[in-house]
Design a protein around this nucleic acid. Structure first.
Lengths: 233, 233
DNA sequence: ATGGAAACGAGAGCACCGCTCTCATTCGTT
DNA sequence: AACGAATGAGAGCGGTGCTCTCGTTTCCAT
């Protein structure tokens, strides 16, 4: 399955160079943000002519796309790991762990966070290659939603779910191979948006001067979400 | 108060040119996004040398900052207008109007939305000049929070508010010159983040293929928020 | 009214960018 | 051994933000 040892010297060198480019690009990204990331600067640091890099990446956007995928995967791994460390029966704890993992990772990697959750830098519409990695966090949340008892004191809509929405939520279930209650799922999607809305506000400066240490507000928000799920008892 | 008629020919020309630059910049922004906005292109369209524009704006970032302020003001005006059209006693309707105004404006002006709520393109930390305009939407929400009855079936935290958070929320009250209940305010801030998290997810492609028409999900989210406020009866 | 100061626009130029093209070299395969 | 593919260097194109200089125009104060 794994092709750890490429056939020739050339293949090995190519793999190594791809890794080097990725590493340097990530360090530049972390240091200055996606807008400042320059193919020429990476080539300079590698001791190569800038044109040589175009043997490996067709364009700067393709390089950025690779970075986006790596970044989604890193956040996904962080969230999956944090959630897995919690006792399966502690559903509220698992949810809190996910929330804190997202926020902690984002605060530790602000430029990386901005790359994937800020305004799309590329043309528009994220390339399809990214969606699989982008779904990792969502998938963890959907699996968690399947473990929530829908008959509890859940904050649910009074009206029945809109059929279009129900269909879309069922698609989310399919995505994770579970069968979560659709009311739970709808609430979950909204709290998902809330989580990333909060982190974006905090990182992008919207909370500046108002909630400067936003820790207390975040704790409150997580507690309220757990309560909305009916998980607090 | 207003200096509609500047003293000399020069001042008038300057004011007009500033308006022209702003107009052209906005059209370029709407057409291609902030990253593609170029001082040289604006100068070209004005029939000026690019260096001439530096008599008016010290840098491209300063020009962008002006655009950001204008954009915050435009969104703020849209939200204020939509909210003002609703009967004062219909608090739920006012909240829904705010939510829809934000989403509708964002969908009509995606690049402008990305400019102010996407990753900060400039260095970091938004310039102080922008915060006043940025607060207009928040202020409408805070004023609305003051009209919500905290003794109703509000979704509130079981534990008393963290003192730091309470102080920050009191600061929000000061900002709008009202005295909203702090539990209402905390929930309001979180639903504020939820609103913009939703719109960002929708516009930036996170919902792609999952909630492609996100209308039903949005209606559901607004309904749930109204319910969390205890406004649904 | 007439200086001088300030504002202004044009143009050249610097250092950078993404990207393409050509050309020589090196490697892998037949 | 020979040929084709992969590779890297270098020059170059058109673009960017920004600076500096230089002549001109406007304004303001004497």
């Amino acid at each position: 399955m794994t092709d750890e040892e490429p056939r020739g010297i050339r293949a090995r060198a190519r793999a190594e160079l791809l890794r080097d480019v990725s590493r340097i690009a990530r360090s530049h990204l972390a240091a200055s943000g996606a807008a400042e990331l320059s193919v020429r600067a990476i080539a300079r640091e590698l001791g190569l002519a800038s044109s040589a890099l175009y043997r490996y990446y067709p364009s700067r956007d393709a390089l950025l796309t690779q970075l986006i995928i790596d970044t989604y995967d890193e956040l996904g791994a962080a969230v999956e790991g944090a959630e897995a460390d919690v006792d399966r029966s502690d559903v509220a704890g698992r949810f809190a762990a996910i929330c804190h993992a997202v926020r902690d990772w984002a605060r530790a990697n602000p430029h990386e966070y901005a790359l994937i959750y800020g305004s799309p830098v590329l043309g528009y519409a994220a390339p399809d290659d990214t969606i699989e990695s982008a779904l990792r966090v969502a998938r963890v949340l959907i699996v968690l939603a399947a473990d929530i008892d829908p008959s509890g004191p859940l904050l649910r809509s009074r009206a029945p779910l809109d059929p279009t929405l129900a269909e879309q939520l069922a698609g989310a279930n399919d995505l994770a191979g579970v069968d979560a209650d659709l009311d739970v799922l709808a609430l979950g999607v909204e709290l998902w948006a809330q989580l990333f809305g909060f982190v974006s506000f905090e990182l992008f400066g919207t909370f500046h001067n108002a909630f400067d240490p936003a820790d207390a507000l975040f704790e409150h928000q997580v507690a309220m979400a757990i309560q909305a799920f009916g998980l607090d008892r």
